[in-house]
């Protein structure tokens, strides 16, 4: 914008060239904010963590003939698949909240984040129920170790994000918020989209991996 409007000539010695930015907004609740970029980078870090875990899964899978080891009950497919519905739906809540944050719509933020929280908790409950169906632990063998590592790390991230969302709900509900916190609400959604999106390949690996890549006869 302003850069193009250069003052010609070289009178700069007495009047240095000046770029007046007082007209620019003091905050920007959008993907142009450094905080948004920072959150994206955090997601990249976690993404590469999970990609490594997926690579490990297949490395271990391909180095043995029988997978999972005999006696291990394959995870039930229905519950985790069902759990995808509230999980994916919860993104709508996130989206609602992040758009409301831009517009400083307090009700919208609250509704969005609440929706996000409720659906995510439904997902977590389903996940916990499903864990009771697994007949192996991380100590059983390497299959147990890698599957539980993936499940644990993803759940850990989800819970951490939900706690942060809860804190934001408290802030917004109590009225103790300004641009900074609205930016927080907006950026929080980035992490949530990521956690949902990364779950899809992880889900495929954990629940379908052993069916697809050489299930035991």
């Amino acid at each position: 914008m302003v850069l193009a409007a250069r003052t010609p000539g070289d009178e700069a010695v007495t009047t240095p060239r000046v770029l007046d930015v007082s007209g620019l907004p003091a905050y920007d609740i959008s993907s142009r904010s450094p905080l948004w970029l920072g959150q994206l980078l955090m997601c990249l870090i976690e993404g590469s963590l999970f990609l490594i875990l997926i690579a490990m899964y297949f490395y271990l899978r391909l180095s043995v003939d029988v997978w999972p080891p005999p006696g291990v009950q394959l995870p039930n497919l229905i519950l985790p698949t069902l759990a995808l519905i509230p999980l994916i739906a919860s993104c709508a809540g996130s989206y609602l909240a992040s758009e409301a944050a831009k517009m400083n719509d307090r009700r919208g933020m609250l509704v969005g984040m609440a929706l996000n929280l409720v659906l995510a908790i439904v997902f977590l409950v389903l996940r916990t129920v499903e864990w009771y169906g697994l007949n192996f632990t991380w100590k059983a063998d390497v299959h147990g170790s890698i599957v539980w590592s993936i499940l644990f790390l993803h759940t850990y991230d989800v819970v951490a994000d939900l706690i942060m969302t809860t804190v934001l709900v408290v802030l917004v509900a109590s009225g103790r918020y300004g641009e900074k916190q609205r930016l927080g609400v907006h950026v929080d959604s980035v992490l949530w989209y990521f956690l949902v999106a990364i779950w899809l390949p992880l889900y495929a690996v954990v629940y379908w991996g052993s069916h697809v890549v050489g299930a035991p006869q």
Partner: peptide, 22 residues
């Protein structure tokens, strides 16, 4: 050359403001 540099004004000094660019 002198025409190629200058200053930003209009930043507030009472808080830790920086400029975000593309």
């Amino acid at each position: 050359g002198k025409a190629d540099r200058g200053f930003v004004t209009g930043m507030r000094s009472d808080r830790r403001e920086v400029l975000v660019t593309s």
